[in-house]
Design a protein around this nucleic acid. Structure first.
Length: 199
DNA sequence: CTCCGGATTCGT
DNA sequence: CGAATCCGGAGT
């Protein structure tokens, strides 16, 4: 895995829902000095712009969300609950503030921690606020394609966005249906509510 | 300046 | 089901 190449910026400069689905199966590569960590993306969520009330950019242009308004192919990393980090990939041409949240990885190389869930993913990959605004068309943090893609993609509502009204129902969470590494163990109850333990 | 709450996770 | 723990965003 030494010949991995970062996906070009125009991969990210497209419709956010398309980029989100195509990110499934791709490799997230984190290089730190001489070591590298690689995970396969198996779960993502799309945040499609100011009209999408679940997206941070629905609050307008603020210091935190400025990176979402900028060029695609950059990392938007933020601190959540004062404890965890979440990593997004900025999509669409500059001026259209959209992003895809990376929610779970399948460990491929150099990872020995839980990668199921956005906060754990960042911890396992050593991604924090230093990575915010980082250009993904570089060599420290990038996305690569090794030709593999999921056989089946599942779409569900996004996790933890109940405040977003109708937008909370949009099926913008995408996952590799056959992956054992999605965060479904923790969140299936949220995705499929109302099911009792009977039968 | 103060105040509120969160694209989460873990332990009770 | 609540605590952890900090900062962005909004209001005074």
């Amino acid at each position: 895995m030494t010949d991995l190449q970062a996906l070009p910026r125009d991969f990210f400069a497209r419709d956010t829902l398309v980029v989100a689905r195509e990110l499934l199966g791709k490799l997230l590569v984190r290089r730190i000095g001489t070591t590298q960590r690689i995970g396969r993306i198996v779960e993502v969520e799309a945040y499609t712009g100011p009209h999408d009330l679940a997206a941070h950019s629905s609050k307008g242009l603020t210091p935190r969300t400025a990176v979402m308004h900028g060029d695609p192919g950059h990392a938007y990393v933020y601190l959540i609950y004062g404890i965890h980090h979440c990593m997004n990939v900025v999509t669409e041409p500059a001026g259209k503030p959209c992003a895809v949240l990376l929610r779970a990885l399948e460990p491929v190389e150099g990872i020995d921690a839980n990668t199921r869930g956005p906060g754990l993913l960042c911890k396992a990959m050593d991604i924090d606020l230093r990575c915010n605004r980082k250009d993904l068309c570089g060599d420290e943090l990038f996305v690569a394609d090794d030709g593999r893609q999921p056989a089946t993609i599942l779409a569900t509502p996004r996790i933890g966005v109940a405040y977003a009204g109708e937008w909370a129902l949009a099926p913008y969470r995408f996952l590799d249906a056959d992956s054992a590494w999605v965060s479904g163990k923790n969140y299936r109850a949220v995705s499929a509510p109302g099911r009792r333990k009977s039968r």
